[in-house]
Amino acid sequence: MSTEVLLLGLAGILAAAAPIVFATLGETLTERSGVINLSVNGTILLSAMASFAVAVVTGSLLLGFLTGMLVGAVVALVVAGFSISLRQSQVAVGFVLTLMCRDLAYFLGNPFIGLSGPRLPALAVPFLKDLPVLGPLFFRQDLLTYLSFVLILGAWIWIFRTRPGLSLISVGERPAAAYVRGLRVNRMRYLYTIVGGALVGLAGPAFSLSVKAGWKGTISGLDGYGWIALAITIFGGWNPIRAAFGAYLFVFLQWLGLVLQPNLPGVPSQVLQVAPFPLMILALSLVNIGNTEWVERTLAGLPDEVRRSIARVLRALRASPPASLGTPFESE
């Protein structure tokens, strides 16, 4: 494969991963505050359909994208309301919403199946687009992909380098400690869930108005990406940069499947297409296996040197969730 084709492929990966990056960053922010938004899969479908519909009807890409974000924010608001104010199981609410939003998307999107709508154009950055290697890779993308790059860095800086980011971490780790220091825990949880939801909502139009343009109803091929985003959030250790790496890895595996297909005639295409999904989810066992009891007991039985090196590796891989994730906060 020539360098040009390779670079083109990699650039395509960066672009195709943008929706997943948005969803993952959004969920990372939400979970950092201590709330799980399991409705991501349904939200992406619903926001993809809604933004496509609005874009088709109004002809405006901008309105389409804004609609997507609005849908994401509203669904997230519902999740937040149930989780924070009503203290119901976050898994239950998220699960019901994910199914319901998917059905809403199919039902309301029926009239829009197969229509053609506006599509986000590429926007090469002058000067930078002509750099060797970096140019074709990074600077000949569309607006959305550029936004995804900026957001990865922005989210990381926000969480780890700012004062509000420190507050965010404390709210997710030990809300009681945050509360006693005057932080408004539940208000922050609402905020981050809604903002995270808006980012997830951005993933929808990133598909239907760009990467996988159009709305095809039940065969849109968008079902499943929300679950992947959730898995990558865990895999990424609630760290935006590591999560982005997970998103790119996933899309890379998809691309690999496509590229290798002609070389592997014996393997059916379905297998290669779907393989990245379970692979990523099974990769979760890598980051979690250190936590299991049998591993701890087995480690204890090993000679010191072996045990220490293995423990070190496990510790580096380990993804520890924010300690209060999924637990409602009561100020009593």
Binding site: L166, I169, R174
Partner: peptide, 29 residues
Amino acid sequence: GMLHQDPLDVPAMRVLDNFLLGREGGWRP
């Protein structure tokens, strides 16, 4: 100010960050 029996701090954060958490200030800690 109340010092609880199990101090209300954030175990996953450093001493310094616990110390300044919650204070008013600008964008950077």
